[in-house]
Design a protein around this nucleic acid. Structure first.
Lengths: 220, 220, 220, 220
DNA sequence: AATGAATGAGCCTTCATTCAT
DNA sequence: GATGAATGAAGGCTCATTCAT
């Protein structure tokens, strides 16, 4: 691995810069030239190392997603025998951390959100593959909380309710000052914990409410 | 307003087509040429009628948003003296209808979602201005459900929880077949009602849970 | 047809310039920028008027070919009842004129030759379609000269012999000074006539020789 | 010459692959990366061994030309005292074999043809130098057949007539299926002999015809 | 009022070549 | 001697915009 100019790998630098720029501007609005310039690399560097803009994007997405899952594992270090309530809280905290991380790890959440709202063809399969285990994990917890009587559709609905609450504050609009959805955050660490607590409590109560309703209906 | 060709004038045709295309591809991926061709208008028509691509987008966004609020009013036709629970259900139904509408009205929801995930500078102020009354309305309902003890932050959190559940199924990713988040919908009308019911019940229980917790804390 | 700068059509100017440049450098070595600059048009002009470099090339080729056939018709103005010998001479003169024309019409011959030696995918079908009637016409004359005993393959061989003699001097290599195949030409008009006479006589004698041989073989 | 991998050194492998690719796609459409990959060599290998793409092309051309002359000598193994007719037939067979050889030797003919239709500056001098002896040889035979009365121009014309008939079937266009000039060849060996015979007979008759005409003119 | 022609800035990509090892 | 990384110049093409009518 010859390094012509700088002491660190060009490809790596490209990935880091690209991750930041993609997460800030989205796929379309990001130009290769921008990324290369910021990474002090030649315009041809992206095509050399990643084949194309799409190739770079795919790598960036995957890397960001994997890293964020590594740093904020879904289980949060909980033992298997932990209660479903604890597991849900861990899951929520994992998501909230991920989307609110103000460093490189937050980029994963940002890109993920943009991909959901406006999918890029360059990623289609990768996306599904990456998200699948996450879905499975979530369903497991929700199912345990809802009890065996709940239908799969009900589990799915509740899972969506929980997950999208976590993503809510990731929307970039929410970070604009003077925005209706904005919230002024003085201490991000505290904010993350408050938010995670809120979502957990809201969701546990919500799920409990759904479960109670199911019981009532079945009893009749 | 000169009537030409199909009975509606060029500007109107451009708006309709642009609304569809923008909501399908997003701002960046949409080209003026595309829109003009689909609207059987000249390439220069957009700049002529709306000044620029940005101008068209802003008009499209505002029109779509206003129309969708007209057809799916936040209050759902409820009298002022209706209970907060009923009002919440009406609000949720309004949102769910809006984002799942498969005709022109759904386009508003789609664009709104993309704007939240990846804001377009062309709209900044319009967006805030348009969304503000919506936020006020929502806060009112949530405040009533939470009781006077709840802090503003708590109201905000709960409002976000409710609203983003409504948007969850609007994500285009969710509409891809074989997608982890996808749900097969045979009858959209039924689906909308089921979803609205789920979100309402989940949220009412969630809010009640939060309120109960606040009471416990205050009693201590 | 609005003319923004010049008094004559941009598309037409592009075609003329492109015809010259393509015939001089070949498809690959010609750049759009070159052509546009020489035609005092914008770099985007080619894509606007012809869709792509390929589109321009196809148009150029077809136009050059058609024009050259118009100016140098295969029949040379001969009546139908003219003898096959006269028709062959006319055909040869047509070809020789075409490939040696030093103006715009010669470009057709030049491009045709390059296309035969190193075909461009952009033209495939057009080429076959354009050349077909030419082949038919040639076969008719040769068949008449060879007599009914000749096989189709024999007609084909003789046609190739005749046609490629005509093309021989079109090879650009032949025009390089100091080239083994080069021939110094003082008066092009005379040269064309001399060449046409040579090829006609050579070919008539050649065909007669082949016919005689066929007769001998059949008699045995 | 260090032997590596498959027993022949890199430079040799590059030459072989380049010969094939150049003959198939032409100079411009061939990329160094393509050649190097197919030769299992580094991208820098061409510049390292041959200085540049031009350098490689020149070497390839010269090697192909020399080899094809070695395998298909112009004289065809005929003794010096053989008749001019026999020598012409040998020359024709040599050319036809060369351009129709479907292995590596045919590449020389292909490149030669493309060079004639669309010369590459990289070869100019080499080309003339290489072809010169071929021309001399051909002129000698033609001169003998035409007799001393023929002018140099006449010899040149006849030489061109003969040589370009030989090249006719080398045009790649002729090899496209469904092409007007195409000829279906089941047995290439037979086809080569038939073609060589045709061209020889056609040319001998043609030359004889020209000679007869010269006699008539001189007698007057 | 409306349009077709034309523009120029910029984008992604290709490719022969060079550098450092 | 040979290579993988890196370069920079250039190419074809797109697209929002403007011009002249």
């Amino acid at each position: 691995m010859a390094m012509r100019k700088n002491g660190c790998d060009t490809a790596e630098r490209l990935l880091e810069v690209a991750s930041r720029v993609f997460s800030e501007k989205g796929y379309q609005a990001t130009t290769i030239a921008q990324v290369c310039k910021a990474a002090r690399a030649n315009v041809a560097a992206v095509n050399y190392h990643f084949g194309s803009k799409d190739g770079l994007y795919a790598k960036v997405w995957r890397r960001a997603f994997d890293q964020s899952l590594l740093v904020y594992p879904l289980g949060g270090g909980l033992p298997d025998e932990a209660s479903a309530e604890e597991k849900l809280k861990a899951l929520v905290r994992s998501h909230v951390h991920r989307v609110l991380d103000q460093g490189a790890l937050g980029e994963a959440g940002q890109i993920l959100l943009m991909e959901m709202a406006n999918p890029t063809e360059a990623i289609q399969d990768e996306f599904v593959e990456a998200v699948q285990p996450l879905v499975t994990h979530t369903y497991g917890i929700i199912r345990e909380l809802l009890g065996p009587e709940a239908s799969d559709a009900c589990v799915h609905f509740c899972a969506m309710s929980v997950v999208h609450q976590c993503f809510a504050f990731s929307h970039r609009r929410c970070k604009h000052v003077n925005h209706p959805f904005a919230v002024s955050v003085t201490n991000m660490k505290d904010f993350v914990e408050q938010l995670a607590s809120h979502i957990t409590e809201f969701s546990l109560a919500g799920i409990a409410g759904i479960r109670a309703k199911l019981s009532r209906e079945n009893r009749v």
